[in-house]
Design a protein around this nucleic acid. Structure first.
Length: 266
DNA sequence: GCCAACGTTGGC
DNA sequence: GCCAACGTTGGC
């Protein structure tokens, strides 16, 4: 596909130690280093999206798992996907003992810092927009199309993915918001109400991990294959898991295998 | 192959 | 720190 796609990648601006190392990577850190490998992504869908990135494509730098989540800067792809060497570095927080250099499983791209968002675009604003039935006057400059595009962003629809696609209209709207601001007077505190209470007690699972970008655990994978569409549905692999067939995680599985959809209970 | 339990993400 | 959301595990 031709270059020109837009992306959103998450990073954690607050310190968090994983295996003895701080995985913090804020916009300040990013600006200081200028270009950084996006290591540590251990999620198939996110990985597959990175494999689609082409040099020069634009990306939003998002602050995640912190006090004030939101879009802090603009970046661009500086190097296409290549094996994530941290996967076989035993001292690294994202070491994956099951991967071999000969058969890279995880990939990363290099991203270069482009500029800061003049006005940090808080997730709360995007959430408010996604829940609004009409375009708020304070930000009417994004237009109806921008308003609609923002309402369908993965960021508000499926928050967990650490690497997401951003369509052009949403990109333009975010750029305008970051440039013009205007929502200072808006109340971004609306309660979103909890959803239904969970049914059963769960033990604690506190924890949280999060890494520079996401790191989920591994499982098998299916690898890309086609290339593009596989990204959103779960490309994850079906049943076999790390345990079961850990050894062959090669990659030959299919592309998108729809298989998870109903899992109402928890 | 289904699906409940589990573990993690990540906002609040 | 709490806990909703959701991908993954793994028994059956």
């Amino acid at each position: 596909m031709a270059p020109g796609k837009y992306w959103l990648l998450k990073a954690e601006p607050d310190s968090r130690v994983v295996k003895g190392k701080d995985v913090k990577f804020s916009v300040d850190d990013f600006e200081a280093v200028k270009t950084s490998p996006w290591e540590g992504v251990r999620n198939y869908e996110a990985r597959n999206l990175m494999k689609e990135m082409q040099v020069g494509e634009k990306a939003l730098f998002y602050h995640s798992n912190c006090k004030s989540p939101g879009i802090a800067a603009f970046a661009e792809v500086a190097k296409e996907a290549y094996p994530d060497y941290t996967a076989w570095d035993a001292s690294h927080p994202y070491y994956d003992p099951k991967t071999k250099k000969e058969v890279p499983k995880w990939f990363m791209v290099d991203l270069s810092f482009v500029s800061r968002a003049t006005h940090f675009v808080p997730l709360a604003l995007l959430r408010l927009i996604s829940e609004s039935t009409s375009l708020p006057s304070e930000i009417e400059y994004i237009g109806e199309s921008g308003f609609k595009a923002l309402q369908t962003m993965d960021l508000v629809k499926k928050g967990r993915l650490s690497v997401q696609r951003v369509d052009e209209k949403a990109w333009n709207a975010i750029v305008a918001l970051a440039e013009k601001g205007g929502w200072e007077e808006m109340d971004l505190k609306f309660k979103k109400g909890k959803k239904a209470p969970k049914a059963g007690p769960k033990e604690k699972a506190t924890g949280r991990g999060a890494r520079k970008t996401a790191k989920e655990e591994q499982s098998e994978e299916s690898d890309d294959l086609g290339g593009e569409d596989a990204s959103d549905m779960e490309v994850a692999k079906p049943q076999q898991g790390k345990k079961r067939k850990a050894k062959d995680d090669g990659d030959r599985e299919y592309s998108a295998a729809p298989r998870r959809s109903n899992r109402p209970k928890r």
